[in-house]
Amino acid sequence: MIDFSSQINGVTQIFGRRLIFKDINYSFAPGCIYGISGKNGSGKSTLSKIILGLISPTRGKVIHKSEGKEIIPEKLHDHIGFVSPYLFLYDEFTAWENILFFQKIRGIEPDIEKSKFLFEQFGIYDRRNDLLKGYSSGMKQRIKFIFALIHSPGLLLFDEPTSNLDTAGKDTVYKIIEESGRERIVIIASNESTDLGLCTKTLDVEQFKTKEN
């Protein structure tokens, strides 16, 4: 199991005068699948972005530790994998080129075998040399999973992981989530009951919405 932990300490997010959530304290440990639930607009994606260090919270902080040492924000991207509907890859490149570029930019030697394995697992190996702009939304969703998994991160966060996927795609994603959840931290932000059904613990954002002003 990967030695990785994440802790949300007193995180509050306010946009303008609107309180999104207040004083969230929560810990994530490997070997468990966590869910973030809440109705539309409740702040699931905002909390996801805060966990990943993509936006700064109004108050509080998120601490990530790898092998007991706190990860500095500049290095956090090496330890996280993210899939979301608002994540876009480069349409002018093929799926294969996208994944190779991402590995090179991360500073890791492109792992052809692992790339091939993941492309096959998601059933898009035959279409790997097609430009991404020719991909359907479901295929684009599959390539996002390869993007998230290729560097073996300690924390995987999937925001609405099964959007645009067909039944076979959903099955592959659920299998990946279950496998990854055994050794890393997996967080699913979703409204889908089937997605949240995989989770062993669920953080309901609605519970942290107390009126201010």
């Binding site: 990943l52 993509l54 500049e74 290095k75 991207h77 996280i80 993210f82 608002y86 994540l87 876009f88 890859l89 480069y90 349409d91 991402f102 930019i105 991360r106 993007f147």
Partner: peptide, 20 residues
């Protein structure tokens, strides 16, 4: 414009992005 800023944030540190 292409919405790939988030992708860049997920693969590289700010100093590497600026240098590139």
């Amino acid at each position: 414009e292409r919405g790939t800023t988030l992708t860049l944030q997920l693969i590289a540190s700010p100093s590497n992005i600026f240098s590139g």
